[in-house]
Amino acid sequence: MTFTLAHLSDPHLPLPPKPRFADLASKRMLGYLNWTRNRHSIHRREILDALVGDLQAQQPDHIAVTGDLVNIALPAEFAPAREWLESVGPPDRVSLVPGNHDTYITATATHFGESFTDYVSGDDGAPGYPYLRRRDHVALIGVSSAVPSAPFMATGRLGEAQRSRLEAMLQGLASERAFRVLLIHHPLRSRSRFKRLTDASALIALLQRHPVDLVLHGHDHVHATIRIDTPTGTIPVIGVPSASAFNDHHRPSAAYNLFAISETNDGWRCEHRSRGFAGTETVQELRDPVLL
């Protein structure tokens, strides 16, 4: 039996019109100016809607969304973001983790969890990260790398407590016949010190001790594939462009990934393919499927 997992990230839904000046205090002012001067012309709702429509036509068994639903975490951004996510799928078919834009400043850092509790809860219903969801033979593990950061910074961090809980969870999964997928917003390796996961080396060391089968992330708005070496093999780490981007001269246009996961006599088989925009305003297959 094949389980199809879709992955999209960084939709960056449009800001509400004319936010109050008081709401734009501190780092939010920089984010608002960036949106009005540049990002609003790149992150387009009609592109996002077309991409999601194509994704739903593929009829995946489950959908992973790895953060940055909003832009500067205004209170008024969360209700429309919730409405959009419900249009993607119900909580039992969509697994979500937050991005740095979802926890943009400390004052509203809890709004994301309060708005999307049923999308970021494990099968046990307990709040907090990591969470664990079992869907057929796939174990989805969601962690949060989203923390408020200083102006001009977009770094993330899991922290020692979350890493400790993750290690215990992966130890418990080691004896199960499950394809383990880790969902995180930040990439495990970054070229920018201003956008990196600050405790990436500790997370990589943890995964080398207790491997997963696949890591999915967003944040950089690009197609990305790296591999983490472990004593038993390698872990593919796959990033995806923003789900709403179009005509960005620095990064690819919107895309999503599909992973067809099945069990064989030799272990797990995972086929990866991408669909998205490539110079035209229609979604298409971007490359031939590859085995991970």
Rank of each mutant, 00 (worst) to 15 (best):
D199H: 05
L5K: 01
H7R: 14
L132D: 02
E86Q: 15
L48K: 08
D229L: 15
P130L: 07
G113D: 14
T117A: 10
N34G: 04
D118H: 04
P289Q: 04
I235W: 04
R82I: 06
T103V: 12
Q171A: 14
T4F: 13
V65G: 14
P187C: 06
I261G: 05
R20L: 15
A64F: 13
A139S: 09
I47Q: 03
D118T: 11
R39G: 07
T103Y: 09
G31L: 04
G113H: 10
L51Y: 12
A161F: 06
P98A: 05
P17H: 06
T225I: 05
E167T: 04
L48P: 03
L291E: 14
V52S: 12
L48M: 02
Y104T: 11
A6K: 07
V147C: 15
L55Y: 08
R134V: 14
T36I: 08
T282P: 03
D123M: 02
R191L: 14
P19I: 13
Q284V: 13
R275S: 09
E77Q: 08
P289H: 09
R133E: 03
T264F: 05
C270A: 13
E285M: 13
H210C: 13
V181N: 00
P11S: 05
L291A: 10
A146L: 03
M169G: 11
R180I: 00
E167L: 07
L5W: 12
H223C: 08
N247M: 13
P127G: 05
L182H: 00
G53T: 10
L30A: 10
G67D: 06
S121P: 07
R227W: 11
H249C: 10
W35M: 04
P151K: 02
E46P: 01
A76F: 08
D23H: 15
R157C: 06
G156I: 01
D92N: 13
D288S: 10
P60F: 01
A224Y: 08
A146Q: 09
N257E: 06
E285Q: 12
S253D: 15
